[in-house]
């Protein structure tokens, strides 16, 4: 038995942090921030919550390097998906002839 057992204290802390994150994101949504900050704040809070779930509830923090690589690969390919598609859509207006 060399499996890492995460203490209950950590699970409770993460659970409370997730609830706080949810409350914050709802409160922030009603406040009118300048520019795109409403979206940025919402996505930042969601990413922090997701990271907490992945690291602690899903034990990635205590997992082998191989699991880390697989998670990182997923994020990397998501980034490619978004970067290439958005770079297409964002640059279409540059063409004077339309598309």
């Amino acid at each position: 038995m060399s499996e890492h057992i995460v203490p209950v204290r950590i699970y409770v802390t993460i659970f409370l942090a997730l609830l706080v994150g949810t409350t914050l994101t709802v409160m922030a949504a009603f406040y009118d921030f300048p520019w795109q900050f409403n979206t940025i704040i919402a996505l930042t809070i969601a990413s922090v919550k997701a990271t907490l779930v992945v690291l602690y509830f899903m034990h990635v923090r205590y997992s082998s390097r191989l699991v880390w690589v697989i998670v990182a690969a997923a994020l990397f390919w998501m980034a490619i998906l978004f970067a290439l598609t958005l770079s297409d859509y964002q640059t279409r207006e540059w063409l004077s002839s339309g598309y």
Partner: peptide
């Protein structure tokens, strides 16, 4: 989904 669909 929650912030992207409900809060935007």
């Amino acid at each position: 989904l929650f912030p992207l669909l409900y809060l935007l």
